[in-house]
Amino acid sequence: MRLELLSILNAERAARRACILVTDIGNGEQRLVKGAEIAADRLCEQLDSAVRAGKSATIDVDGRQVFLTVQVPPVRIVAIGAVHITQALAPMARLAGFDLTIIDPRTAFATPERFPDCALVADWPQNVLPDFGTDRYTAIACFTHDPKIDDPALEAVLLAECFYVGALGSRKTHGKRVERLKEKGFSDAQIARIRAPIGLDIGAVSPQEIAVSVLGEIILALRKKPLRDSGAVA
């Protein structure tokens, strides 16, 4: 591998961007394809599947063995609201391999006792999110259903790249939320990115079940192909 390629590979990872090193095992030829370049690549389908799965793999290209060193950033979930659902979500997200950060300005909710071993930020979303870097490997789930807390978070991420935005609340609650966001100047397309009511429709009732449905919906958004056009992963 040329040192130059290794340097770019490492820089892309540090910047939380996907990239693939394509190596022809037979003759040692190598090239690097950045995440943003995959769509235009001649191996776009194979590269896209590999990046989506997040796994390195050997593929066959016209009878030649080609190895794909796939590098994708760890996926992060940001939960707005240190609530009961979030308490259930925290261990589930960890088991499933996601990094979880919990944001809630209410210090009575955001306590280490309620969330042992969790990344917890007791501050307003609008103070935290701009520097957090909500990139295309970040999911946001709003659980407070308090407009004072959820709305600023949504306003911050609707302009960002994150692959999933969900917000807790009934259809009625969400209807009011949509009105508020429209008044703030957000377009229908931007607002349509919000999954609401949040979670897969599995009839979840308890906070734990809702956490399962939300985690399932996040995984769906991350892995399933049809979402490619919505900019989930490129």
Binding site: L3, L6, S7, L9, N10, R13, I25, S56, T58
Partner: peptide
Amino acid sequence: DDILARAEDWRKAGKGVAIATVT
């Protein structure tokens, strides 16, 4: 990932470096 960062550091420090990858 950290391992590949080290490979870069080693090479830049002038060492001979090889990378082995499970294919």
